Computed example of a mutant assay.
Amino acid sequence: MASEDEDASGEVRTVEVGEDLAGERIDKVLAALVPDLSRARLQALIAEGRVAFGDTALADGKLKARAGLYTVEVPPPEPAEPQPEAIPLTVLYEDADLIVIDKPPGLAMHPAPGSESGTLVNALLHHCGDTLSGIGGVARPGIVHRIDKETSGVVVAAKTDAAHQGLSALFATHDIERIYVAFTRGAPHPLKGTIEGAIARSTHDRKKMAMVKTGGRHAVTHYAVERTFGPQEKPLAARVACRLETGRTHQIRVHLASKGTPCLGDPVYGSGPPAEVVRTAIREAGLNRQALHASVLGFRHPVTGEALRFESPLPPDMARLEGLLARL
């Protein structure tokens, strides 16, 4: 009989060996009781000192099994090293230390379980070659900040350790200019303001983030409505500029939704459909994601000290959407 638990080092199996199996080779017995682990895998775990009877680690898989409880520690799988892939990139700036990319929607930042390829990291490894290898860790080389897979816009990646450390420090102290353009359902009220509220993972849905009263991470978004669409007294949609003071997971999407004005097309935080004419505009624009674009990224170069600022125009789907909304 086997049960499972989790600890920081991975999965821990507790296996009970009955009197009927005592005297058999322990690797054979454990393989029978934990069928998803092969005998060879168990022998390797025993050799690593990861299988114990009580508090005593087993020294050899050939030992005779004793009746009682055994623990089998199965370490988490090592992250696969991303492979270079020839994915086209729109490069806004590049030097020996860093590279600035205009990321299209649909491109994930780095490999994750279930999507180990086709990411920005894979593209950067191909583009930058060995210069990127290992910077910031094997699984996410060069990555110092992230935007959601379906969010488009400007991102920066490091090519050297010095740049990685410097950029990480700038993001940690929020000494970065980051402006996003969002199209929202209705318009936030007031038309200009600051949304401040801690964000943590939702207790109801672990795939979502939520504003929380206690715990979580401090988050601040400054916003300004640049344009409204539809009746002036009750807009059907709006173009909103959001300036990040902090950068938390899904921050803008969560904060705008908390005002009752989620990003158009947001499949997670949408909380209700927009007006029919807005839905029609979304379909005609071919928008299949949240209408959110990282339009401005500005920072001081972590190595040279030069002030850098990059702007990205609206991608085609959001540009088409704005044109259609302007007719309302």
Rank of each mutant, 00 (worst) to 15 (best):
residue 2 A to P: 15
residue 3 S to E: 14
residue 4 E to G: 03
residue 8 A to F: 11
residue 16 E to K: 15
residue 17 V to C: 01
residue 18 G to D: 14
residue 22 A to C: 06
residue 24 E to R: 14
residue 30 L to Y: 01
residue 36 D to L: 09
residue 38 S to D: 05
residue 45 L to C: 05
residue 49 G to R: 12
residue 50 R to P: 00
residue 57 A to S: 14
residue 57 A to T: 15
residue 65 A to S: 14
residue 65 A to F: 07
residue 70 Y to H: 04
residue 81 E to S: 14
residue 89 L to C: 12
residue 91 V to H: 08
residue 100 V to L: 07
residue 102 D to I: 10
residue 104 P to Y: 10
residue 120 L to W: 04
residue 123 A to E: 00
residue 129 G to H: 05
residue 130 D to G: 13
residue 134 G to C: 05
residue 137 G to W: 01
residue 142 G to Y: 02
residue 146 R to S: 03
residue 148 D to E: 13
residue 148 D to K: 09
residue 149 K to C: 07
residue 150 E to H: 09
residue 151 T to R: 04
residue 158 A to Q: 01
residue 159 K to Q: 08
residue 160 T to E: 06
residue 162 A to C: 10
residue 169 A to G: 12
residue 170 L to F: 06
residue 178 R to E: 02
residue 181 V to C: 08
residue 187 A to L: 01
residue 191 L to W: 04
residue 195 I to S: 03
residue 198 A to Y: 03
residue 201 R to H: 01
residue 210 A to Q: 13
residue 212 V to E: 00
residue 221 T to Y: 00
residue 230 G to M: 05
residue 234 K to Y: 08
residue 237 A to C: 14
residue 238 A to G: 10
residue 245 E to W: 05
residue 246 T to N: 05
residue 248 R to S: 10
residue 249 T to N: 08
residue 250 H to M: 09
residue 256 L to T: 10
residue 256 L to S: 06
residue 257 A to F: 05
residue 260 G to R: 07
residue 263 C to K: 02
residue 264 L to P: 06
residue 264 L to T: 13
residue 272 G to P: 10
residue 282 I to N: 00
residue 283 R to A: 15
residue 284 E to L: 12
residue 286 G to C: 06
residue 289 R to E: 05
residue 292 L to Q: 01
residue 295 S to C: 11
residue 295 S to G: 11
residue 300 R to V: 14
residue 303 V to T: 09
residue 303 V to D: 06
residue 317 D to G: 09
residue 320 R to F: 07
residue 321 L to V: 03
residue 323 G to M: 09
residue 325 L to H: 02
residue 327 R to Q: 15
residue 327 R to G: 13
residue 328 L to R: 08
